[in-house]
Design a protein around this nucleic acid. Structure first.
Lengths: 224, 224
DNA sequence: GTCTATAGTCAGATAGAC
DNA sequence: GTCTATCTGACTATAGAC
């Protein structure tokens, strides 16, 4: 309950970054919400950029460890055969969505922040987050290739790209949802429900057969 | 070439917003790049927020008009039957991706900006962009429902959500791509290629049959 | 419409007492 | 480790000459 100064800063920063974005959130906001002194951020983290990185590392590193553990278990459980595609997808997306289960720990807030981070402009953050993801991608990609042997390599790249995109968007809890659905997002943000819906959608997308190569591309409708 | 002051500001703002985000971009940056006086922004647009809105409106309104035209043509061409799902999806995503075709006009930059806008925290921008999308959603949604009569309403909502998510992520040209693929995004950002790949993926995802209702959900793998 | 000059506020970061 | 006080610079926005 009475967290350390460092922990209180991380919590407050996570919260405000998720609500307002990084550059719109000042250290003064953060320290005020954390009820610590303004100078504490610079003392404990050095710079604002380093604080941003720490906010991500705190949850991203365990989350990716969870992903790798699930992948290992899945591959072992089915060896020497390939694991089912839907289970593979689930191993990738579930650890992210699980974060929202620990709502009291701020996991849900972080999920929103994480979703947005994929499209954040800051080159520095991009680099930091990418580094935290490298091992996950390196381990999942060859398994996907094995499970989907009919997909050419470049097509698989794109489809993984699409997969990550859906996940990122769902995590961000984009308010656009309120426009598409009349319902509110969080009313129905049941992790199991969402994981299952996502898995069904993504499994079908990943499995989509390629159109015959000699077929003409989609006919163009006139454009200016 | 020698654009009006207003146009030069819009171009420079679009460019910098796409590169750095909104709150990280100052009016000083914008006016410097546009080579106009600092006070010109406030003279022509009033406030920074109004400038942001103008940057979006300039391209979003024509883009959505294009979407509605394609939808109309498509429905008419197949009446009284339903249009094919892939053509319906294409009518929705192509007008967005087409923007990158007009690279000289900065369409590609705007595409990145648009992709990011879906997850932007600013409540004001959210509201403005949502308003510009309302008619598009209201017109496309019932046609999707007709083409996919087996999907329950709430499932359709989620799938449209997923669809928009993929599109947003692709538009943002997220650098995460460089991690998944070894290639660079823009090397292969051929609009037709991407539209076709997206259409194939999304058509399969939208068509995915629901798992039997009485079947247990995906078995849980242990989590802490 | 375009400029200069500036008001008024807020930012990140640090020095130095305790 | 935590505090106060402050430096230095940047920000949006506006007033008023031209």
């Amino acid at each position: 309950m009475t967290l350390s100064t460092k922990g209180r800063i991380l919590d407050a920063a996570e919260e405000l970054f998720a609500e307002q974005g990084f550059s719109a959130t000042s250290l003064r906001h953060i320290t005020a919400r954390a009820r610590v002194n303004l100078a504490a951020v610079n003392y404990h983290f050095g710079t604002k950029d380093a604080l941003v990185e720490a906010v991500f590392a705190r949850r991203l590193i365990p989350m990716n460890k969870d992903r790798l553990q699930r992948l290992d278990r899945l591959v072992r459980a089915h060896a020497p055969q390939d694991p089912p595609l839907d289970r593979l997808i689930e191993a990738f997306i579930a650890p992210a969505l699980e974060l929202s289960r620990h709502a009291t720990e701020g996991g849900a807030r972080f999920l929103k922040l994480l979703g947005r981070s994929y499209t954040e402009p800051s080159a520095l953050l991009q680099e930091q987050v990418r580094e935290m993801y490298r091992e996950v991608i390196d381990r999942f990609r060859p398994v996907f290739a094995q499970v989907l042997p009919d997909l050419p390599g470049d097509e698989l790249y794109w489809r993984l790209h699409f997969l990550v995109g859906v996940l990122a968007y769902c995590m961000s809890g984009a308010d656009m949802m309120r426009l598409i659905a009349s319902c509110r997002v969080h009313d129905s943000l049941d992790t199991n429900m969402l994981t299952q819906r996502l898995t069904v959608f993504l499994t079908a997308g990943m499995r989509a057969p390629l159109p015959a190569v000699d077929a003409p591309t989609l006919p163009e409708t006139a454009h200016a």
